[in-house]
Simulated assay, not measured.
Amino acid sequence: MKKIVIHSEYIKLDQFLKLADCVSTGGMAKALLQEGQVLVNGEPEERRGRKLYAGDQVKVETIGEFTVAQKS
């Protein structure tokens, strides 16, 4: 599982997907979410604006698993 470090209290899911190099554009993030390929903490997620906090886990089918980490 790869750690992705954020520099604020939270990050929106679509921004996280770009930061983690899962997608390169917001449109690609939207498509990925609509196809049901993203799980947040084990639950399917379709909301691009879902706020992720340190400790949240994101799984993207065929790409990998990530953990949100807070810069300390």
Rank of each mutant, 00 (worst) to 15 (best):
M1E: 11
K2V: 10
K3R: 13
K3V: 07
I4R: 02
V5A: 08
V5Y: 12
V5E: 12
V5H: 06
I6H: 05
H7W: 09
H7T: 13
H7L: 11
H7P: 00
S8D: 14
S8P: 01
S8M: 06
E9K: 15
E9F: 04
E9D: 15
Y10E: 11
L13H: 01
Q15H: 13
F16P: 02
F16V: 09
L19K: 15
D21H: 15
C22L: 05
C22G: 03
C22Q: 04
V23L: 03
V23T: 03
S24V: 10
S24T: 13
S24L: 02
T25L: 06
T25A: 06
T25Q: 06
G26A: 05
G26V: 03
G27D: 02
G27A: 02
M28V: 03
A29G: 01
K30Q: 11
A31N: 09
A31P: 00
A31F: 01
L32W: 00
L33E: 01
Q34K: 13
Q34S: 11
Q34R: 12
E35Y: 04
G36T: 07
V40I: 13
N41T: 08
N41W: 05
E43N: 12
E43R: 15
E43L: 12
E45Q: 14
E46Q: 11
E46P: 00
E46V: 10
R48K: 15
R48W: 00
G49F: 08
R50Y: 02
R50I: 03
Y53H: 12
Y53I: 07
G55K: 06
G55L: 10
D56H: 11
D56P: 09
Q57F: 05
Q57K: 15
V58L: 07
V58H: 03
K59S: 12
K59T: 14
V60G: 02
E61L: 11
G64F: 04
G64A: 10
E65S: 14
E65D: 11
T67Y: 12
T67Q: 13
T67E: 14
V68T: 07
A69S: 14
A69K: 12
Q70V: 04
K71V: 10
S72R: 13
